[in-house]
Design a protein around this nucleic acid. Structure first.
Length: 879
DNA sequence: ACCCTCACG
DNA sequence: ACGTACGTGAGGGTC
């Protein structure tokens, strides 16, 4: 086997990555997408080729010998975008840290360096691989030099390989003739003119017949095509110059520094740190942990796998002031636990022999009574650890969420980076990759021990800085009095779940299917062809091209077919109504009938997950399935609620706050008139209409009420005349007039909202009544749209967030009272302003009282918090 | 993986 | 001139 050298065309591959892939930015806002793409392809090719030598060539900014011959060379290039430009030094830094040789030479392009090194490599008897995005390089292909050209096909990167023979096969010319081809055809990118009137076809034919431009010229009279013949005659000199320009120099004055090109370990500690900094998580696992880990935490990891040892360990842990705990489990089993007794004392306890899942559950439960159990995610741990609501726990994920609710994940390695002076720990993905916990456990992988210990370590070590920051920011109370107790409340709701009648759900779905098929036929009939109605793309073409319904474009990718657009066209086009009904029914079928049916568990109940660290405002969210968006507005959809039923002997009590956000607004703004309105009014929207339009309450028309209601909503969302005009289908001017009248009617509201924006700009965040913060970085944006968004967010978040705080407080109190008063009734759902309690029939009066007292009493506002309550034998009836 | 659409508050 | 209401999650289509 020959030795092999890989030569890379640096700029060309970087360019390709930049234009071919979505841009990325790291947490500091650096553009990194092109560097990421470059490394991706580098790793791929290194894996395939396994070369002994490697060099990356770059162009330089100085003029080259080609400019001396032809000053217009590359003269029409567009300037490189800043986002790409700034990635060049970044790539060079990365290559340097990977100890990969980079080569450049004043007066020469990267191509010339590649050509020269390829030739020298061959002379040394090596196989040569050239990686570039530029087809011009094909002229360098030989029997021993292969050109590899990556391209994107169907979202996947595939590499075309060319040795001498493949060039001939694909382009019907020899590598040397690639130069002639380019000279004949010209190259717009390099500003090489070529022969006008000669394209790829003619050029290839000329070369097949005459071999070269010179020979073609000497037989110019024989060329049958008139245009080509005359053009070649006229432009022969230019063609010769083009040929010179297109020829890659293979004897540039560059050394073949064999030693420097030698490929060593590219996965150095320095490169690792840069990958970290750039958030290239996918690459981190390529590095050898032993090599890159500067921290010596792993020295302090111990395994404890016998019962006696565990007894002693938990005994000692129970006496510590706090312990970090990480419980490793998934649906298939419990695998072990990590314990941190100090920053330099971590233990891994695998489930094994006498140390069972139940043993760990019990031991962790006991720790909750004697010490503070710190965890990255307490609620998840509660599913397999016997901790009661009175346990002492610290939840690092929730603490970090409060400190910055805009992050999408709160993993231990992120928390270590953010709260332990930038400490770099390997994350789960990096340790285990795609390997499941179960597999790692079965095979006794050391990475599982490391995962458990790092997680426990982080939980332990971040507690103090997180607590300090929460106190500094005034959020310690929100944390201890709202969020932490809520962990237990939500855990209980998840565990109870809610019964769903699977059979009825199936019947409902089948009824939908019948009508869906009818509609499908009707729609196809009217369209005159069969097509996928679910495809907005196909539907757009059918409606707005084939049927030529006037409606026009909206989105970047094609026509908008959303319901609000279609509804405007419905009156004149019968097909539209059928499409709208079809859409409605397929939604009900796929998301609800089928979707919910698929997640009913063996106990006949659905156990959703309530996420506490997702939203920017402080609300909770619900997933797998989402039980916070079960249909209610349309009757047909609302019927789904009939399949949600209480267990035998129970009924549902459903309690919801009446206009909680508007009441919060009244309180926070202190607007006397709005507060007074709430004290008097039965129907706030009607009263708003009466006051805004200066008409007696009795004379308010339904339309006026509807408009006033929309304005009330708009205010809460961070009003804009455009948004309101869209909602009400009125002009912006009219919308602006409504808003102005509203602000005149309730004068303190405007001042309050402006104050929120002002505060957001000044402090960088806005706050709820209880001190929960939301950062609003958009307010500093130079982009108008972004800034406007920031302003609306600044106005909305304190209102939405305060309402979220209030219902969370109410939930905790309701949950506590149900426990304290030893009731069988249980909280099962929260839908932002609504609580659903599965109520033991004998307890109905008591639970009603509890709900009313705790919901109304959750906050003391200048206006009453009003609660509507209903009872029923299913969720439909209880609304 | 991303967009569109639509369900809820 | 920009081109939007605030906050979510899920399913289907497309590339």
């Amino acid at each position: 086997m020959c030795e092999k050298i890989l030569l890379i065309d640096g700029h060309s591959i970087l360019n390709r990555a930049f234009y071919g892939l979505p841009d990325l930015t790291n947490s500091e806002g650096l553009h990194t997408g092109a560097v990421y793409g470059f490394l991706n392809i580098l790793f791929k090719v290194l894996g395939e080729e396994k070369p002994e030598y490697l060099a990356v060539a770059f162009d330089r900014s100085e003029p080259t010998f080609r400019h001396a011959k032809y000053p217009e060379y590359k003269g029409t290039r567009k300037p490189m975008p800043q986002e790409l430009k700034e990635q060049i030094p970044l790539l060079k830094e990365m290559l340097e840290k990977m100890e990969i040789a980079t080569v450049s030479l004043a007066g020469f392009e990267a191509d010339d360096i590649l050509g020269t090194l390829a030739k020298k490599g061959e002379e040394k008897g090596m196989d040569v691989i050239i990686l570039s995005g530029d087809r011009d390089l094909l002229q360098l292909a030989t029997k021993k030099t292969m050109i590899r050209l990556p391209r994107t096909a169907k979202g996947q990167t595939v590499i075309e390989d060319y040795k001498e023979d493949q060039v001939q096969e694909r382009y019907l010319v020899t590598p040397a003739q690639v130069i002639e081809l380019k000279a004949l055809m010209g190259d717009a990118a390099d500003n090489i003119p070529g022969i006008p009137g000669v394209g790829e076809k003619t050029a290839t034919r000329l070369l097949a017949e005459y071999g070269s431009i010179e020979n073609a010229f000497s037989h110019v009279e024989e060329i049958s095509q008139k245009r080509a013949r005359e053009s070649l005659r006229e432009n022969y000199q230019m063609a010769q110059l083009s040929k010179e320009l297109a020829t890659i120099c293979t004897n540039s004055p560059i050394e073949f520094e064999q030693e420097k090109f030698q490929l060593g370990n590219i996965f150095t500690k320095e490169a690792y740190e840069l990958c970290r900094k750039l958030d290239f998580r996918n690459f981190l696992m390529k590095f050898d942990p032993a090599e890159v880990n500067e921290n010596t935490i792993e020295q302090d990891f111990f395994i404890c796998n016998d019962l006696e040892g565990c007894e002693a360990l938990f005994e000692k842990a129970g006496q510590a002031e706090a312990v970090g705990i990480a419980l490793l489990w998934d649906k298939e089993g419990v695998y072990g636990a990590g314990l941190a007794l100090g920053e330099d004392e971590m233990y891994y306890v695998p489930v094994e022999g006498m140390v069972t899942a139940a043993y760990l559950s019990d031991k962790i439960g006991r720790l909750g009574k004697s010490t503070t159990v710190c965890s990255m995610d307490v609620k998840t741990m509660l599913k397999r650890a016997d901790l009661t609501p009175d346990a002492n726990v610290f939840d690092c994920g929730i603490a970090a969420y409060l400190l910055n609710p805009l992050k999408s994940t709160y993993t231990y390695e992120e928390l270590a980076k953010d709260y332990l002076d930038g400490k770099l720990l390997p994350g789960k993905e990096e340790l285990l990759g795609k390997i499941s916990l179960k597999k790692a456990w079965e095979e006794d992988m050391p990475e599982l021990e490391h995962l458990a210990c790092y997680m426990a370590y982080t939980a332990f070590a971040t507690r103090a800085p997180l607590k300090a920051k929460l106190q500094e920011t005034g959020m310690w109370k929100v944390y201890t009095e709202i969020e932490l107790p809520l962990v237990f409340t939500l855990d209980s709701m998840e565990k109870w779940g809610i019964e769903v009648k699977g059979e009825e759900l199936k019947n409902y779905g089948e009824k939908l299917t019948v009508r869906i098929h009818e509609l499908e036929k009707l729609i196809w009939q009217q369209a005159g062809e069969e097509f996928n109605i679910n495809s907005p793309k196909q539907l757009g073409v059918i409606l707005f091209e084939k049927m030529a319904i006037p409606g026009g474009k909206k989105t970047k990718t094609g026509y908008s077919t959303s319901a609000d657009i279609l509804e405007k066209l419905a009156s004149e086009n019968l097909i539209i109504n059928d499409i709208l009904e079809y859409r409605q029914l397929t939604k009900l079928k796929s998301t609800y009938a089928d979707g919910l049916g698929a997640v009913i568990e063996k106990d006949g109940r659905i156990h959703s997950t309530f996420n506490q660290t997702i939203t920017a405002t402080g609300r909770i969210s619900s997933t797998e399935p989402n039980l916070q968006n079960i249909p209610v507005r349309m009757e047909l959809g609302r019927l789904i609620r009939k399949v949600f039923v209480p267990e035998a002997g129970f009924v549902f009590l459903d309690a919801d706050y009446s206009q909680i956000e508007l009441r919060v607004l009244a309180h926070m703004s202190g607007d006397e008139k709005l507060i007074k309105a709430y004290r008097e009014a039965e129907d706030i929207h009607r009263l708003t209409a009466s006051q805004v339009f200066h008409i007696p309450l009795e004379e308010v028309t339904p339309l006026q009420r509807r408009n006033a209601k929309a304005v009330n909503f708009g205010i809460v969302y961070g009003i804009s005349s455009f948004g309101l005009s869209q909602d009400l289908s009125i002009t912006r001017k009219e919308a602006a007039a409504y808003i102005q009248k509203y602000f005149e009617t309730y004068p303190s509201i405007k001042g309050f909202l402006d104050g929120l924006v002002e505060q957001g700009k000044e402090k960088g965040y806005v706050s709820t009544m209880f001190g929960r913060r939301r950062p609003v970085p958009e307010l500093k944006s130079s982009n108008f749209m972004q800034r406007s968004f920031g302003e609306r967010v600044a106005m909305n978040s304190p209102i939405q967030g305060t309402a979220a705080d209030i219902i969370k407080i109410a939930m905790n109190r309701v949950y506590k009272r149900l426990l304290d008063e030893k009731l069988r009734s249980r909280l099962v759902l929260q839908v932002h302003d609504e609580l659903l309690i599965e109520t033991w029939k004998d307890e109905i009066p008591q639970v009603s009282r509890i709900l009313e007292e705790e919901m109304k009493g959750a906050a003391n506002l200048a206006v009453e918090l009003e609660v509507d309550m209903h009872q029923g034998n299913n969720w439909y009836e209880a609304k």
